[in-house]
Design a protein around this nucleic acid. Structure first.
Length: 845
RNA sequence: GCCGGGGUGGCGGAACUGGCAGACGCACAGGACUUAAAAUCCUGAGUGCCGAAAGGCACGUGCGGGUUCGAUUCCCGCCCCCGGCACCA
């Protein structure tokens, strides 16, 4: 009988005792670094997590059997708000809450039998990890990659902290969903924009990443080529003022500048306040600006917010036409993109067009398709298609892409502008006004300014705060022993930075720490990453497509530039696994639809659970959890167990297949065995179609049952029957080959059961030592094949021919088949197509 | 609106390079075993029509066209669903 609970316990203990999955660098063997995104220790793993970890485990176990030195570690993304919120709610220290959760979840994962190198386990909330966040931060500070600036930031009222742009999802906080508001704060930023071009360009080399993720990253970086152009500002009285008072705009279409009939400023633009002060009614001016600013990003997103603006009363000079154009403030111009100012070209930009129509601003046509004549009066929409310049002075007649190049050069020559590249990507704000995170290792000294904490003083350890109210400033600001320090440079009294780092800092490099997790002189020994890096196979949720995955690519480059790693990209192959739903919704405690893996293990065993989540759908796809599916997986494992147990004595006595001569049924069985070995190997890697790999193994088992039945070695319903006696040595050898292959191939999916069966088959050293079974193309080759025959595109019959039959023989056989000849007789054969080994197609008239 | 992915039986899914659509599993039905049930083993099944049956015919991969001896697969046009981005100048 198959008793998963006993078997699983036995093998889990065995793996732990023998340190089965611990590894060291071994240059003599190819390495394989297999990683699943580490876990936030929320307290309970659900089957969605299980699915991700299973995908990695199947890969890791398979690659081990193929002879790779496999690094497969696991750890905890252990800083973050829920711990602090739990502390506020339950009066528990975040550290206790976090470590308790880790202990519980670790137990859950261990009961699943995942082949992790647990000795490399790390938790980002421990000083021996976050110390290196601080170390890296000081390196970035020294290089100008970490800097502080006052800026408008996204603020989550519920989390009481700042959010990076990437962390605002649909206008709400990525974690709690609360509507994000804007605040002006001093913020620590990481200069990811310094790598914008490289991150974008290198994405093309990530050929083993899903297209979807690459596209999302490209859109997020949002590179656009254009020009900055300065419109000299005219004095309030109308006369010109000196040249350095100008409004700089960014445009991708400088070729349309003859159609620029006005200029627009974002409500956040620095000149706005100056204009307000000079306005006849400054209060009213400011009120109108304030109203636009109040239309925050959320309001703008829910439905089209009307394009609004007002004339500042000032004018600027269009540097190409030399005409004065009015300067407006417009609510749809973004302060944080480009220069915060744009030229209004209503004839060729739909937004400007709508704005101009609203306020009766002049519309001018300066580009039109050749052979057409647009009139600005009856233009129904802006024309942004191809065309040739008109009414554009010396550039009239030029096609627009060419005009764009020439006019950019002209602007540069005149000193009125220059070509530039603009990114949507902004620097990454990492300051968080919360407790449970990495302290930023900076000391503010009244005389020396911002001074990084010296390496020898790292880590800056989080003080033990006992009271969490969730209100007011950063909790760290309320700990005088922490805040009050002397300046490392001058020794004067100074104040320690009280912001902590965004937890995405932690997850941006943990994959390198796994290579050398206990190093206490460096984040990692470069030699270890040189051996293990990059991660060969990385799997996790697609929700990290532009957060974690772009930050990690950035950090990798920083480590490279510091000289710790030599590779650019951290993840060679990325698999984004689909979520597991129940009742059509993501599993969550609040919805009460969580499937707890422990319950499933108690009922059916970890192996059945593992097999089911691998079989139910391709890894990338979202799936609905179905209880009966798990039962089916359990049923299959019992079926495997029975046939192997029943045949075990015969298999143990059987010889190898070498030198034997087999009958037709034996050859067919071997064909299935070898064909399955080939197919499953390819399905697991490179294809990672784990569901079809399982299906192939099920087919092998079905064939095995049929073969046994044929050979009379399996009485019907052999539960509890005596073990089979196989008289014919050839049959026994074939059974051995099939059974052993089956057990080995299934072992990455259901390792406990397969180790047990493998041992029962008389092997001492486990499935990894046995290696992935080899297939023989000869044994897998079909002897004869059934070929479908079509007449006029319709299936009319099948013929069986030897696999090496020639064109003519196949054609003859096809025509001779009675079901075919019935459709051919009396008609004229136009043509016969023989797709060798696949199909015969006969065309008749 | 733009970008990406997808639409196949009652259900999850398979079909790798244009070649038998529906592998494998779930659910279902029938049979064997059993006093009976469960479990197990075997068998059946896309839909419709004809036939007592073996079997035959037609239709069938979101919709409409096209290319081809042959299309789930390629091309054109459209519909719907999911994900991402969204006044980015």
């Amino acid at each position: 009988m198959y008793h998963p609970q006993e078997i699983e316990k036995k093998w889990q203990e065995f793996w732990a005792q023998t340190r089965a999955f611990e590894v060291t660098e071994d240059p003599s063997r190819p390495k394989f670094y297999c990683l699943e995104m580490f876990a936030y220790p929320s307290g309970h793993a659900h089957v969605g997590h299980v699915r991700n970890y299973m995908i990695g485990d199947v890969m890791a176990r398979t690659m081990r059997m193929r002879g790779f030195n496999v690094l497969h570690p696991f750890g905890w993304d252990a800083f973050g708000l829920p711990a602090e919120n739990a502390a506020i709610k339950n009066n528990l220290h975040p550290e206790k809450w976090t470590l308790d959760n880790i202990a519980h979840m670790k137990g859950q994962l261990q009961r699943l039998g995942i082949s992790y190198a647990w000795e490399r386990e790390l938790a980002t909330c421990l000083p021996n990890y976050y110390r290196w966040n601080q170390w890296l931060f000081t390196r970035m500070f020294e290089r100008g990659l970490a800097y502080r600036r006052r800026s408008n930031v996204n603020w989550c009222e519920s989390c009481q902290t700042v959010l990076a742009n990437e962390q605002v999802v649909d206008g709400g906080c990525w974690r709690c969903g609360t509507t994000v508001t804007t605040r002006e704060l001093d913020q620590w930023c990481l200069r990811i924009t310094a790598y914008a071009d490289e991150l974008l360009a290198a994405a093309e080399g990530l050929t083993e990443w899903p297209e979807k993720v690459l596209t999302m990253q490209q859109n997020w970086i949002g590179r656009s080529e254009g020009a900055r152009v300065r419109f000299p500002l005219n004095a309030a009285s109308g006369g010109k003022v000196d040249a350095d008072a100008s409004i700089e705009v960014f445009t991708t279409r400088i070729d349309t500048i003859y159609g620029a009939t006005f200029v627009m400023l974002a409500p956040e633009h620095p000149l706005v306040e100056q204009f307000a002060a000079e306005a006849p009614d400054p209060a009213e001016f400011r009120a109108r600006v304030a109203r636009f600013r109040g239309q925050d990003r959320t309001a703008r997103m829910t439905g089209e917010v009307e394009k609004e603006g007002f004339d500042t009363g000032r004018t600027a000079t269009n540097p190409f036409t030399e005409e004065p154009v009015p300067v407006w403030i417009a609510n749809f111009v973004l302060g944080e993109y480009g220069t915060g100012a744009v030229m209004g070209v209503p004839g060729h930009d739909q937004r400007d067009f709508e704005f101009a129509r609203n306020y009766s601003l002049p519309i001018r046509v300066v580009v039109q398709p050749e052979g057409e004549t647009f009139s600005s009066d009856d233009l129904a929409a802006a024309w942004d298609g191809d065309g040739v310049l008109v009414g554009s002075g010396p550039w009239s007649g030029l096609p627009w892409p060419e005009a764009n190049r020439q006019m950019t050069a002209e602007a540069k020559a005149r000193g009125t502008g220059e070509g530039t590249v603009q990114y949507r990507l902004k620097d990454w704000g990492i300051s968080r006004q919360r407790y449970w995170g990495t302290p930023i290792p900076i000391i503010h000294c009244p005389s020396c300014g911002m001074v990084p904490v010296q390496d020898e003083d790292l880590p800056v350890v989080l003080p033990t705060v006992t009271e969490f109210t969730g209100r007011g400033d950063s909790p760290l600001a309320q700990v005088p022993e922490f805040v009050n320090v002397s300046c490392p440079r001058c020794g004067e009294a100074a104040r320690r930075e009280t912001d902590t780092m965004d937890t995405f800092v932690d997850s941006s490099w943990y994959f390198y720490r796994f290579c050398d997790p206990h190093n206490d002189t460096l984040p990692f020994d470069p030699a270890t990453v040189a051996y293990w890096g990059p991660v060969d196979f990385y799997s996790g949720g697609v929700e990290h497509a532009i957060l974690h995955l772009i930050y990690s690519r950035f950090f990798s480059r920083v480590f490279r530039d510091i000289g710790l790693v030599t590779i650019d990209e951290p993840f060679t192959r990325l698999l984004t696994q689909g979520m597991v739903l129940r009742n059509g919704a993501v599993m969550s405690k609040s919805k009460g639809n969580v499937v707890d893996p422990d319950d499933m293990i108690a009922s059916f065993g970890a192996d059945a659970l593992r097999l089911y989540v691998m079989f139910v759908a391709p890894p990338e796809k979202e799936v609905e959890w179905i209880d009966t599916g798990l039962e089916g997986a359990f049923r299959f494992l019992n079926r495997v167990w029975r046939v192997v147990e029943h045949l075990s004595p015969a298999v143990r006595q059987a010889s190898g297949v070498a030198g034997l001569t087999f009958d037709a049924a034996e050859r067919a069985m071997r064909r299935r065995t070898h064909g399955t070995i080939r197919r499953v190997a390819q399905d697991i890697s490179p294809r990672v179609h784990l569901n079809t790999a399982v299906a192939a193994l099920m087919e092998l088992v079905n064939e095995l049952y049929a073969f046994c039945e044929l050979r009379g070695v399996r009485p019907a319903g052999f539960e509890g029957e005596a073990s089979a006696v196989v008289a014919r040595p050839e049959t026994a050898a074939v059974l051995r080959e099939a059974i052993e292959g089956l057990v080995l191939m299934l072992s990455p999916f259901t390792p406990h059961m397969c180790e047990e069966l493998w041992e029962g088959l008389g092997h001492r050293n486990g499935v990894v030592a046995a290696g992935w079974p080899e297939w023989s193309e000869d044994a897998a080759r079909e002897e004869s094949i059934e070929i479908p025959v079509q007449v006029n595109g319709k299936l009319r019959g099948r013929v069986t021919v030897p696999v090496d039959a020639g064109q003519d023989a196949i054609e003859k056989a096809a025509l001779a088949a009675p079901t075919v000849s019935a459709h051919v007789e009396g008609r004229q054969i136009v043509k016969i197509i023989v797709a060798k080994g696949r199909l015969v197609s006969i065309v008749v008239k």
